[in-house]
Amino acid sequence: MANMNLYSRGDKLFVIVNMILIGLFAISTLYPFIYITSLSLSTGFEARAGNVMLTPVEFTLEAYKRVLIEPQFWISYRNTFIYTIGGTLMSLAFIIPGAYALSRPQLYGRRFWNLVVAFTMWFNAGLIPFFLNMRDLGLLDSYFGIIIGFAVNGFNIILLRNFFEGIPQSFEEAARMDGANEFQVLWKVYVPLSKPAIATVALFCIVSRWNGFFWAMVLLQDEDKIPLQVYLRHVITELTDDESFGAELINAPYSVETVSAAIIVCSIIPILLIYPFLQKYFSKGILLGGVKE
């Protein structure tokens, strides 16, 4: 791109130092992931002895084997998929029509309805009333409770509403004159026109569902329903104190550290797979939903 020869000596130095600093920051970001991956691929003995630094020591897949034979791992992995896919679809089912309605100038009391949505971003009843409400609704320990209870959030609605508002009104009018009703206008015209924004919202939902931990921990007691993150937490904090696992470890080629690391790697992989999309749409999304009236 730029021609280095055009720069003065001071500029060259500046550019090079800058590059080194950024490189260092990037390495420091990447290193923990490399470290965890190497840990998961090393023997339990080497891991406990603190010999793993950068690359796997005495490469082995034993930790993964141990993780993959654990039924609870598969149960919670499946659950996370259920919550992520179900929750995202549920969110879109609410958010797309809701945001579209809020973007229509013909909506009576449009300011009021927008305020109803925006207010939930500024004021939040807090943990206790939300929990009691979920309990009163009979949504504790239920797949449906997790899926519906976090389906809508103001930020996503406003993000999509802003996008819909940017589409000229004449698209709606032309479609209406062509005989489309509002549902057809939305589905056949606005949704196809808003693919990037909808993808952004969908990805926001996917990430928050995949990573969701706190409410799953609070609302779900049944081990058959817990998602991966809650299971992961159990493993990381409780495996050390688990007596039967402790006994199992005595002659095992894996350790608490390598098993934890292996589960971490397993749960990061799906995020890495969709990361190219995340990077593409998230940066657009935060700018679209953020500082804008």
């Binding site: 004449s170 698209f171 009018e173 032309a174 196809p192 026109l193």
Partner: peptide, 8 residues
């Protein structure tokens, strides 16, 4: 329409 409103 003025802007044609063609579905892209």
């Amino acid at each position: 329409f003025q802007n044609y409103a063609l579905y892209p």
